[in-house]
């Protein structure tokens, strides 16, 4: 009788969860980029309206959402490199689980460096009366 599978690349355990997360973050970034291309287009039409829209990016609500965006980018980008290594590096598949935890650790470290700075910036701007 074969024992319970330890989890393959895409099914079960880390292989599957990293894939689910990669998919969800990819979709989220895609929809952000649709909106972001439109808001940036305002810069060509009306400086005043551009500044008005960008002011909302500095507020508490979207300022907070930006933390989520950065977390999504960090995971998707670093895990994307992991996927590429699995495909192209001869030892990639063997180390895929180790690499998953390296991705999580790196993403957390970078996020910990970013989040306090960003929160301080947003709070500072709110105090200035935006």
């Amino acid at each position: 009788m074969p024992t319970k599978p330890a989890g393959t690349l895409y099914r079960g355990k880390t292989g599957m969860w990293s894939w689910v997360l990669h998919r969800i973050t990819g979709v989220a970034i895609f929809f952000f980029l649709l909106v972001h291309t439109l808001d940036t287009a305002l810069v060509r039409m009306s400086p005043k309206d551009y500044d008005l829209v960008i002011a909302t990016y500095k507020g508490a609500i979207i300022g907070f959402a930006e933390l989520g965006l950065v977390a999504a980018i960090l995971f998707h980008a670093l895990n994307g490199i992991r996927v590429i290594l699995i495909d192209f590096w001869s030892k990639g598949a063997k180390y895929q689980r180790v690499m998953f935890w390296v991705v999580i650790a790196l993403a957390l470290i970078l996020f910990a460096g970013f989040a306090p700075r960003h929160i301080a910036n947003v709070i500072h701007d709110i105090e200035l009366g935006y």
Partner: peptide, 21 residues
Amino acid sequence: LIFGHLIINLVMNGGITQISF
């Protein structure tokens, strides 16, 4: 490209607060 974009626009020099026309 994106890490560079975010470092310049969202981290350095006041991050999001510096963005304007």
